[in-house]
């Protein structure tokens, strides 16, 4: 009986980890898996390939859950999303096969290092996102007409219909391929890269970009998940707990996001993410034997790094906004 209780606690602790990951993921806009993989691999002692496998499956649940709301509101551009899925699904195949290869050959330290670098790298554009609501118009190019990249949505806050035209479809496809690779390799939705593809390359409005990216994440993750499944890298005990936890967490996150008026609270979570990113990087270097430090020192270095990175970004971003306000 006590054994069953102990296992129940173990299961619940993963669910709680999933809830925390889902909440932080939706508050920061980076998605639950970005928090879940470091959490499971660094603090729960779960082999990283099972952590990425479970995260990939959980990503589908959160993506489908919130995409359900956004497609109803007609902000998501299903057509552009599916067109770009050609590249993300192909990328996901390459990425998950690479993950399988890396794990079968005992190079899993590489996953930690890549994860750390990607996490830290995607923090910068995410922090600065949301400064401008509508993009500056760019002249339509050949791909606008050929791939029918036009659309419109009703913006509740601006109280008007917003028309938009996408450009540089080929460039977005190119970026999306890498977003797919990262998704399959690291078990995350790689929303930051997807947003880069649609916001920066295609010049779509931020609302369309984020909701369409969210819609696409499910299809990309489904491709990766099936490869993980057939190679034996999904453990049902872990995946069941994380799917439940992350879904609950993302609902909590979305609720909090609607209520908080002081956006500065998000900086605490950005700091947690950069701490996790630095930890992953250091752990990877440890595992590859390039570095030999104690666990305590690893935590201290990561904490100092997170503090410096986030204060730097905070000062830079806040000053940028102030300068922007003065300019107007």
């Amino acid at each position: 009986m006590t054994a069953i209780l102990y296992i129940a606690l173990k299961f619940l602790s993963i669910v709680v980890g999933g809830i925390a990951a889902g909440t932080i993921g939706s508050l920061t806009g980076l998605g639950g898996a970005t928090v879940l993989v470091p959490l499971l691999s660094l603090f729960y002692g779960i082999p990283i390939i099972y952590a990425t496998g479970a995260s990939l499956v959980s990503t589908i649940a959160t993506s489908a859950g919130s995409a359900s709301a956004y497609t109803r509101e007609k902000i998501t551009n299903v057509k552009i999303g599916i067109g770009l899925e050609i590249a993300t699904t192909a990328g996901a195949i390459v990425g998950s096969l690479t993950a399988v290869y890396i794990n079968n050959n005992n190079y899993s330290w590489a996953i930690y290092i890549i994860f750390g670098v990607v996490l830290l790298g995607s923090l910068i554009p995410t922090v600065q996102r949301g400064k401008y609501e509508e993009p500056l118009p760019i002249k339509a190019d050949w791909s606008t007409k050929l791939f029918q990249l036009t659309g419109s949505y009703y913006d509740k806050r601006l109280k008007k219909k917003v028309d938009y035209e996408g450009v540089r479809w080929w460039l977005a496809e190119f970026i999306m391929f890498f977003a797919g690779v990262i998704s399959g390799l690291l078990g995350i939705g790689s929303g930051a890269l997807k947003v880069l593809g649609m916001d920066w390359a295609m010049n779509l409005p931020m609302k369309v970009t984020t909701t369409t990216s969210n819609f696409m994440i499910g299809i990309t993750a489904a491709t990766g998940s099936s490869i993980y499944w057939y190679n034996g890298y999904i453990q049902v005990f872990i995946a069941a707990a994380t799917a439940i936890g992350v879904l609950i967490g993302s609902f909590i996150g979305a609720r909090i996001l609607m209520k908080i008026t002081n956006k500065n609270i998000r900086w605490i979570f950005f700091a947690i993410l950069s701490f996790l990113g630095a930890e992953m990087l250091l752990r990877g270097l440890q595992k590859s034997r390039a570095l030999n430090i104690s666990l305590d020192l690893e935590v201290v270095i990561s904490a100092i790094f997170a503090f410096i990175m986030i204060s730097g970004l905070y000062i830079y971003t806040v000053r940028g906004v102030e300068r922007h306000a003065k300019g107007n």
Binding site: I60, K79, G218, A221, W229, A240, A243
Partner: peptide, 20 residues
């Protein structure tokens, strides 16, 4: 049962492509 649940999840976004 868990396996079925996980595969329903995997097929959910795929069915959207069929609708499209």
């Amino acid at each position: 049962y868990i396996t079925t649940g996980l595969w329903v999840l995997i097929f959910t976004p795929i069915s959207v492509v069929f609708i499209a």
